[in-house]
């Protein structure tokens, strides 16, 4: 076992699959010699050569369109979109094309593509470098959307994503890249896609979160414990498909739920989870399912980030209101 940051675990996953399968290709802007602007592909070009790990011209729709074409010829592309705010440049290649190929071809073709991209706020980036756009992706049938919250999961989920025969959008929260290290096996292993993880058990309220918000939820749960509230924390790990089984099982036990996302409130992942809980478990609920989200503005210019982003205090407030309902 080694101590790794999340970004090291991500590099390690790509290294593992580049080594396992010669059809795996890693490419994007600055991913070659420079090792990516966050260094996620550090050393991979040296190890596997420029044929397998390479820089592309600067064009996101070209990158993902090429990924589709490479997949059509049997490759297993792992393109990087340098920051996920640039996904608008390539919405057609993702949602209009790779998501639909299996379906469009009557089930005869597949798109084993893993689009990796940093996302999420709190690191003082310029405009369109920090948005939480997972909701856009999750709304597109045909894609899987994976968001790890820690180094161990990141490695296992990324290996599994690369092996998956359907397109996966793999979103890496920038704040988590280097925020902590943990034990990560050097050997290969996988973490199942579409399976949530109960990070902390509790009996009074279920907190559903993903990405960086898992850590805010855990922090909130610790403080709530001191106030005598026992919170269960679920890390979704995959936001499409969502593991409703795990969520419902928990809510049936705790009878209360707060769903947390860093993204803006309207039409988000949290809204759809809250709706599903109410449809499936209304008789178990002691209080309405509540959401903790960012407000419905465009991602703030950096100076206002601190107030705009939800944090553990906003979670505690919402938990208090479901407890006192």
């Amino acid at each position: 076992m080694a101590q790794m940051t999340m970004i090291q675990a991500i590099t390690d996953a790509m290294r593992t699959e580049l080594g396992n399968d010669e059809n795996v290709l890693v490419f994007g802007e600055d991913v070659g010699q420079n090792g990516g602007v966050f260094r996620a592909t550090e050393g991979l070009q040296d190890e596997f050569g420029e044929d397998r790990v390479f820089d592309t011209p600067l064009a996101e729709s070209g990158i993902n369109g090429m990924a589709v074409g490479l997949a059509l010829t049997g490759f297993r592309p792992v393109p990087e979109i340098q920051f996920f705010g640039f996904v608008y440049e390539t919405m057609d290649a993702i949602s209009g094309q790779m998501a639909r190929y299996r379906y469009r071809s009557g089930g005869t073709r597949q798109m084993p593509i893993t689009v990796r991209s940093p996302f999420g706020g709190g690191v003082h980036t310029p405009e369109l470098h920090a948005d939480s756009l997972e909701g856009l992706m999750a709304q597109q049938p045909g894609l899987k959307v994976v968001i790890p919250s820690n180094p161990y999961d990141a490695k296992g989920l990324l290996i599994q994503s690369i092996r998956d025969n359907d397109p996966v959008i793999f979103l890496e929260h920038m704040k988590l890249y280097r925020s902590f290290r943990e034990e990560v096996p050097e050997d290969e292993y996988t973490v199942e896609l579409g399976k949530a993880n109960v990070k902390r058990e509790g009996t009074d309220v279920t907190l559903v979160a993903y990405g960086a918000m898992v850590h805010s939820a855990l922090k909130a749960a610790e403080q709530l414990e001191e106030d005598g509230v026992s919170a269960e924390v679920i890390d979704l790990r995959t936001v499409s498909p969502v593991d409703y089984e795990t969520i419902l099982e928990s809510v049936e036990k705790t009878n209360r739920a707060v769903v947390i996302q860093e993204a803006q409130k309207q039409a988000g992942i949290a809204a759809s989870i809250a709706a599903e809980i109410q449809e499936k478990a209304i008789l178990h609920l002691e209080a309405p399912v509540m959401r903790v989200t960012a407000p419905d503005t465009i991602y703030p210019f950096t100076q206002a980030e601190g107030v705009w982003l939800p944090d553990h205090t906003s979670i505690i407030e919402k938990v208090e209101s479901v407890m006192n309902f």
């Binding site: 409130k265 465009i298 206002a304």
Partner: peptide, 20 residues
């Protein structure tokens, strides 16, 4: 003066919608 989240809300639309 530091910009506020409320300032940002005010520059979102010509008129503030219900949710905002």
């Amino acid at each position: 003066p530091k910009q506020k989240v409320t300032d940002l809300m005010d520059i979102m639309y010509e008129e503030l919608p219900q949710n905002l």
